[in-house]
Design a protein around this nucleic acid. Structure first.
Lengths: 206, 206
DNA sequence: GCCTTTCTTGGCTGCACAGCCAAAAATTTA
DNA sequence: TAAATTTTTGGCTGTGCAGCCAAGAAAGGC
């Protein structure tokens, strides 16, 4: 499951093709769902032959991994500075939810695709009791943030940060599916409502 | 996609076999995931031949529908009386979350299976812009409950009941996947934390 | 007991897919 | 321009699956 060669060695064409294939794969998964997104369909959308994907990627696995890697990297780059800029608990929580949902709105298909991938990975690929899957990492990171502000007295301390982190991630991760199923869904007003919910739930009674 | 015959006409054997196959299908889906749960695997678990499933069900579709029908019926029977027994907004909300999560704990595999099915149905089966899928019904029903108590002044009225309903359902629906991925996950304490979150978020400031 | 109906098996067919490969086309190098 | 290399195509192979069916086994009616 290694890339075919080191990134630095890639030709211009190879780099461009890989990007083109990744984009086609994201749009295909977002449109027809993970398990209908065959290499044939992805190739058709990119306007190339099936074999070409096998030439540029060692297998479907590497293609999917590349999608995850790229999108996660982009979302980190967008959200992390915004979140760490906040110094108060409620502020951090607001910006955490807000930046997540803004990123989802602005990268609709990318997020629909990785949520699709994550679901199938959790459900099937995983032999039960796997070490570390992606959603767990997000939950753990958020739980740590919450715990830190609990300790500093900036958030109420009578809740389990892990449980609340699970609920917050669940509320965020459901948004891409909503977006794709319901064109009416207004993600910005959803964001505001969710922010209020978790603000009221975690804010110290002062 | 109709059942082979009216329910009343079924022989003893047919009824027993259908139940046996449904049970095997639920356990298989819960164990290996939806898309690895082939008729062959389900038959193997039930200790019967593949063809027998085709004899008792018109197709895989009917089998899946039967699973959904049964589990939804059971969960309604468990939860509905408990929820309608509550007369206050906060009480309703507490019992709604509690009875959902208790039912999940007591019917682990059943719930893992239907969440699996629902995910794949949303993601793939659905031509975009479908009329009514199951999770939407649950969200809509909960949103109506919330709206009713908002109008009677029993819950704060500065949130969109639909958005909060989506968040509550998301927090509940994530539990089966957590259960199957993480044996450590304590669903009862999770329930208590989630109850507190949404209680604080929706309770009128009195 | 025999005959009919119900039940069950295992094999067959066709489909969709991922991965592989030989050869053609395009591009680069000498 | 010729040779070498990279890129691309389309077909082939094996796998896993759902649905179908002929024939056998079991159960029930007469």
């Amino acid at each position: 499951m290694q890339p075919r060669k080191a990134e630095a060695d890639r030709t211009f064409i190879e780099t461009a093709r890989r990007a083109q294939i990744v984009d086609a794969a994201i749009d295909t998964i977002a449109e027809v769902g993970y398990s209908r997104a065959s290499l044939g369909r992805i190739a058709a959308r990119a306007g190339i032959s099936r074999g070409l994907i096998s030439y540029h990627f060692t297998g479907k696995e590497e293609l999917i991994t590349e999608i995850l890697r790229g999108v996660i990297e982009q979302s980190r780059a967008y959200m992390l500075p915004r979140i760490t800029a906040q110094s108060t608990g409620p502020g951090m929580l607001r910006v955490y939810i807000e930046s997540n949902l803004t990123f989802i709105r602005e990268h609709r298909n990318h997020l629909i695709a990785i949520v699709e991938i994550a679901r199938h990975r959790i459900a099937e690929g995983a032999p039960r009791g796997l070490p570390d899957h992606e959603p767990d990492q997000a939950v753990r990171a958020l739980a740590q943030l919450l715990a830190r502000f609990q300790k500093s007295g900036d958030l109420r301390s009578d809740f389990d940060p892990r449980a609340v982190a699970i609920a917050i991630r669940a509320a965020i991760d459901v948004a891409p599916a909503r977006l794709s199923a319901d064109p009416q869904f207004d993600i910005d007003s959803y964001a505001q409502d969710i922010i209020q919910v978790f603000d009221l739930a975690t804010r110290t009674a002062d």
